[in-house]
């Protein structure tokens, strides 16, 4: 069984934000929420790097561990999904998530949060695959159609890679060997407890 992962090759990212836009469009992500974002480190300085980040679908996911109502589940592909029917909007998953992935629509008074929303690896939620209810709550289920997440699929520089962890790690390794450098697979150590030797 494949173990799906994301890999952002920061040496290729040109901060075009197309992945961000593609995600918003493909999944009809609610106003004010970004499931994916691009963060630029050392902006304007030598050695600047941009990294496209969303939920990394962690191994032994912290969000899943802390959720007081146990609304997360990890699929056989290693994708971390959750049920908006069960979520109570407590915000704990955001505190535990190393990548700031969980997002909350602001509803009502004071800081009250709506149902958590995050990247689903374009794999929907607990509802029937491809159903209208699933789409309304979680967005597209491309994985069920045999397609990879749209952000990675349409990345123009192929900086953002999605797919089976071993295959994308192999692609990245070959790139590093060929061009002679690589700033590493950002977040892999934190998310998957492994690094890609380069």
């Amino acid at each position: 069984m494949a173990r799906m992962k994301f890999l952002c090759d920061a040496d290729r990212c040109i901060e075009c934000n197309a992945c961000v836009t593609a995600c918003k469009n493909e999944n009809e992500v609610p106003w004010g929420i970004n499931r994916r974002r691009v963060v630029t480190i050392n902006d304007g300085k030598p050695g600047e790097k941009s990294v496209s980040m969303a939920c990394m679908h962690c191994t032994d996911a912290p969000c899943q561990a802390v959720c007081p109502v146990n609304c997360f589940y990890t699929t056989a592909d290693g994708v971390v999904l959750h049920s908006k029917d069960l979520c109570i909007g407590c915000g704990y998953c955001f505190y535990a998530c190393p990548f700031g992935a969980p997002q909350y629509p602001k509803v009502g008074n004071f800081g009250s949060r709506g149902k958590m929303d995050k990247c689903t690896y374009c794999a929907g939620g607990p509802e029937a695959d491809g159903s209208a209810e699933e789409y309304a709550k979680y967005g597209a289920n491309r994985l069920a159609e045999g397609k990879l997440p749209l952000c990675a699929e349409m990345c123009s520089t192929k900086s953002l890679l999605a797919g089976d962890g071993e295959i994308i790690a192999q692609i990245y390794k070959e790139r590093v060997v060929k061009r002679g450098y690589g700033s590493g697979a950002w977040g892999w150590k934190t998310a998957y407890r492994e690094t890609i030797a380069s």
Partner: peptide
């Protein structure tokens, strides 16, 4: 780092302290 969306929380790329 620096981001381009209004949500300043999203400019934090990684915080392993969550663990």
């Amino acid at each position: 780092g620096r981001g381009t969306i209004p949500d300043v929380k999203s400019y934090t790329l990684e915080q392993p302290a969550g663990r």
